[in-house]
Each structure stands twice: as structure tokens, then as C-alpha cells.
Design a protein around this nucleic acid. Structure first.
Length: 486
RNA sequence: GGCCCUAUCGUCUAAUGGUUAGGACAUCGCCCUUUCACGGCGGUAAUAUGGGUUCGAAUCCCGUUAGGGUCACCA
């Protein structure tokens, strides 16, 4: 059997769109699953849209997601170059071949004529605006004269009318188009660069791409590509058009309604494992109930046949859930290094906490966070004394005699050298026993005093992590602040 | 508007002619826990619509409706 070769072929717009990520991922999974090759090709044939650093950025995002390619602009390969801007001569050569065969022709029409034509056709309420094949009738001599005069030209595909163009899509089945609805597409622009259609077909052929897996927005231009393959007499790849990713209002996923760039999600603290896992499930499932996947499991189970046809809404809540799931499965040592990296970006960067202390924070918070940054932002009391006290909890838990209970607890704690979690708990039980009060009467004020909050890990974990001196200080401060304000 | 694609809980989806239409996220309730979370148990919630075909339709066919894509010297 022929080797499976697939490609991700983005145009460098400046960032990797999550829809692009999903396309890249399915290509990658399909290649890995079938022991094929995954290729990155950059479609940079629009000189007007050149963005500085866009390719580097794209590659960064791809690699961050673990989508390593076998061939590409920065890794090389036997089918390069992998930047279309470096393959211009190839496209020209094959466009000329098409002209010689009568399947394409020079067009010297000025933009003004095209504009007028378009307006005229719209005025006539024609179902579709199409080029009128005006330049197809130019004589050989005329064409040669125009070329000699250096008149600007484009090369157009010569579509034959009244033909059915039928192809099979792996995801959608048989799709049929009428050639009457297909315009004489420009293949080579007046600046000598190819359009998408030309470059794409030529490259897919010479890069020996076996399966074209791309977004549904390409479905309606596929007949043009089919025509090209047929005119060249080249073997066609198999096609698979993926359903689109949608906004919550079911329009095509767009910047206006949230983040679309992979780097945005990275910056917000999403794990690459979670993003990949989530995006994989938008439009595909293995047919079982598994939803939590690592990359290797996705590779094992992926198949194009199980890709859905309908568009999928990008639902942040489910992504958040998956992020929390993946975070919890991460080894504490890895979480530690991620947390340290994050702390560097906060005002607490000079605290120099020991790994041991941070590990304890991680352990106590792990079940309570969705993002790494929450190991800091949801429990700032581990890093600094509370600046304020949650009002609702103060009202509910800070009573007339609360400070008396807390002082008794504090005094008792002060006597112990290096109290452990158990010491705190034993002392606590002793005090509530002596005072003959319910545990809640002390536990909630204590939490409020040392954290300023009403939620968080077990109180004795917090006390142990904070340590005796800090606990004592915070109790004193809380009594001062809260009794005063009452 | 022409052409093309699509249609199961709010969302992601399972069920490829016979199921009380299943799971997950979200949501609600209970349990666990004197906090919050995690976890466990349970609830609300879907086959867009009208016709066929069939003993039997979410599933096959046709129409309607709705949504999306595409109609550039952008990809």
C-alpha cells in the first residue's frame, strides 16, 4: 500500500487558530495512527498579507501542543522546500503546461473590466458572478503581442461547462457539483504568485500527499482541485472535510466572541494536554464513553471514519473541566516547577519558599484548582497575611466571645515548639473541650483569622503550612482588626 | 441570491432499522465534610418539522424550516 502522507498547510496569519489546531491534530493523529508522515507546509503566497514572525509563532504553537511534524520548513525533508513562496517556478511551469494543453489561458483583462463585468452581472441578477472567458478567444498573435508588451496578465483555469464533478469525501460521502457553477479560477496572479488552488494541488501532488484533511470551508472549492488533478492527469488524493468549530451562537468561531489563538489559551494557563484533548473531541469520538485522553491514546483510537459531519460549539466550560482533570493527574514535581515559574510573575517572586512548602501548598490545593495560577490566586494567604476579611464570614462567625477563644488557642500553640498538623489538631480539640463549645465556633473564626476567607483546604493543613509564628501573628492581627470594626 | 454542507438534552456526543434514546460538561438536589473542593448517589433536559418506505424509523427517501460554508489577482 502507498505510504500515508498528510499535511497541515496554514497560511501564516500571525497565530495558530484553534480550528487550525484541530485540523493539524487530526492530520497528526491520522499520520501517527497509520505509520505515515505528517508534513507542515506554509502557504505564504499572498505577499500583501505577510506578517513578520508569523511562521515562527505558528511553529511554536504547534510544538507546544506536541504536534511534531516529520517534514517542514525548519526540519527539512525530501520534498522541500516547504514554503510555497520558494516554489514559485514550479507553479509557473505547471501553469504553462496547462496552457499548452488548453486547460488554462492567459487573461489580460484589467481590474476595471472585471469590476464592470461583475456589476453588470449583478445588475442582471445572474445567479452567480463569473468570468466571461473573454481572453480565451484571444488569438495566438494577440497573446504573444501582449506578452511582448509586458502587459500584466493572470492565468485562468479553463472550466468546461455542463459537466458533473463528483468526488468522494471520507467524512461526507459522495459530493456532486456542476461545472457551470465554477468560475474560471485564477491560477497565477499578475504578480507571478500562484493562488491557493494552484499551489495546493501542485504541492500536494509533488509532496505525494495521500489524504487531504482540511476544514469544511474548502469543500466548495474542491471541484476546482479535482479539475486540476484531472487536467494534469495526476492521481487524486483522498479528501476529508472536517466540520467547523463554532461560537456559542453557532456562527463560525471568531475573534469577536472570545479567544481563537492557541497562544491565548496558553497565556491563560491552559495545559496543552487539556487543549489537545478538548479539541480532539470536537467532531470526533471513539464510540465509547472515554473523554479523558492523552495524546498516545488519541493516536491509538483515532479514525477519520468516526469524524462527525456537523459543526461543534467551542464550549469553555468543558475545556475548563478537562484542564482541571489534566492538572490533577500531573505529577506534583511537575506542578512544582510550573508553580515556581508562575510565582516569578507575581509580587511573591522574592519570597524564596522552599520546595517542601510549595509542595504542601500544591498538595492541599490540588483538588481545588483548575489552573496553575490558582495555586497562588485562590490562596494568597499562603504567601501573605490577609489584607481584609470576608465580610459575610465575619458577620456569621465573629461573635462577642470569639477573641477569647482564639487567644486561648493562640496561647496554647505558643507553648509548642514547631507544632505539626497533628499538634494543631490536638490543641484545637483540647481547647474546644475546655471551653465546652462546638468545633464550628472556633474552626470558622480561626480560618477567617489566618486566611481572611471562608473557603479552602482543611484548617489544620493551612495552620501547619503557615507555621506557628505566622499563625500567632495573624490571630493577634485579626483580633485587633475585627474587634475594632465591630 | 446560486451552489454545497449540516440538523439527538443548553453544550460535546452515543445509539449505523427493534434501547425505558446512553454518557460527559453545565445545572439542581442529597450524601461525604462543621469550610470550599474532590468523590458518591439522584433529578431536570433532546431525536427541528411534514410526508413517505417498513411489521417496526433518531436511523432510509422526499419536501419544508433553520443554521453554516462558499461564490476575490485571501488562504
Amino acid at each position: 500500500m502507498k505510504e500515508i502522507r498528510v499535511r497541515f498547510a496554514p497560511s501564516p496569519t500571525g497565530y495558530l487558530h484553534v480550528g487550525g489546531l484541530r485540523t493539524a491534530l487530526y492530520n497528526f493523529l491520522f499520520a501517527r495512527k497509520n505509520n505515515g508522515k505528517f508534513i507542515l507546509r506554509i502557504e505564504d503566497t499572498d505577499r500583501n498579507r505577510f506578517v513578520e514572525g508569523a511562521v515562527e509563532n505558528l511553529i511554536n504553537s504547534l510544538k507546544w501542543c506536541g504536534l511534531n511534524y516529520d517534514e517542514g520548513p525548519d526540519v527539512g525533508g525530501n520534498f522541500g522546500p516547504y514554503m510555497q513562496s520558494q516554489r514559485i517556478e514550479l507553479y509557473k511551469k505547471y501553469a504553462e503546461e496547462l496552457i499548452n494543453k488548453g486547460h488554462a489561458y492567459y487573461c489580460f483583462c484589467k481590474p476595471e473590466r472585471l469590476q464592470a463585468l461583475r456589476e453588470e452581472q449583478e445588475k442582471q441578477k445572474l445567479p452567480q458572478v463569473k468570468y466571461d472567458k473573454h481572453c480565451l478567444n484571444l488569438s495566438k498573435e494577440e497573446i504573444q503581442r501582449n506578452l511582448n508588451d509586458n502587459k500584466p496578465f493572470v492565468i485562468r483555469l479553463n472550466v468546461i461547462p455542463n459537466q458533473k464533478i463528483i468526488f468522494n469525501d471520507i467524512i461526507r460521502g459522495t459530493v456532486e457539483f456542476d461545472s457551470n457553477n465554477i468560475d474560471d479560477q485564477i491560477l497565477i496572479k499578475s504578480d507571478g504568485y500562484p493562488t491557493y488552488h494552484m499551489a495546493n494541488v501542485v504541492d500536494d501532488h509533488f509532496m505525494e500527499i495521500s489524504h487531504v484533511i482540511r476544514g469544511e470551508e474548502w469543500l466548495s472549492s474542491t471541484p476546482k482541485h479535482i479539475l486540476l488533478y484531472e487536467f494534469f492527469n495526476w492521481e487524486k488524493p483522498k479528501f476529508a472535510h472536517l466540520p467547523l468549530l463554532l461560537n456559542p451562537d453557532r456562527s463560525k468561531l471568531s475573534k469577536r466572541q472570545g479567544d481563537v489563538a492557541v497562544e491565548d489559551y496558553r497565556a491563560k494557563g491552559y495545559l496543552q494536554q487539556a487543549l489537545v484533548n478538548f479539541v480532539a473531541l470536537l467532531g470526533w469520538n471513539a464510540g465509547d464513553d472515554q473523554e479523558f485522553y492523552y495524546m498516545n491514546e488519541l493516536i491509538e483510537k483515532f479514525s477519520l471514519e468516526r469524524v462527525n459531519k456537523a459543526g461543534a460549539v467551542f464550549d469553555l466550560q468543558k475545556l475548563n473541566w478537562l484542564n482541571a482533570e489534566h492538572l490533577r493527574k500531573l505529577d506534583d514535581k511537575i506542578l512544582l516547577s510550573m508553580l515556581k515559574d508562575f510565582i516569578l510573575t507575581t509580587p511573591y517572586s522574592n519570597l524564596n519558599y522552599s520546595d517542601d512548602k510549595l509542595l504542601k501548598i500544591i498538595e492541599s490545593m490540588k483538588e481545588r484548582v483548575t489552573f496553575i495560577h490558582e495555586f497562588v490566586n485562590n490562596c494568597k494567604y499562603f504567601y501573605e497575611p490577609p489584607k481584609e476579611y470576608e465580610q459575610k464570614s465575619v458577620e456569621k462567625n465573629w461573635k462577642e466571645d470569639t477573641h477569647i477563644h482564639l487567644i486561648k488557642f493562640k496561647v496554647e500553640i505558643e507553648r509548642i515548639e514547631n507544632p505539626t498538623k497533628e499538634d494543631f489538631e490536638i490543641t484545637f480539640n483540647k481547647i474546644v473541650g475546655e471551653l465546652n463549645i462546638g468545633k464550628g465556633k472556633l474552626i470558622h473564626p480561626l480560618r477567617l483569622a489566618v486566611t481572611g476567607q471562608s473557603t479552602g483546604p482543611g484548617i489544620f493543613d493551612i495552620l501547619a503550612i503557615l507555621g506557628k509564628d505566622e499563625v500567632v501573628k495573624r490571630i493577634e492581627k485579626a483580633i485587633q482588626d475585627l474587634n475594632q470594626s465591630k
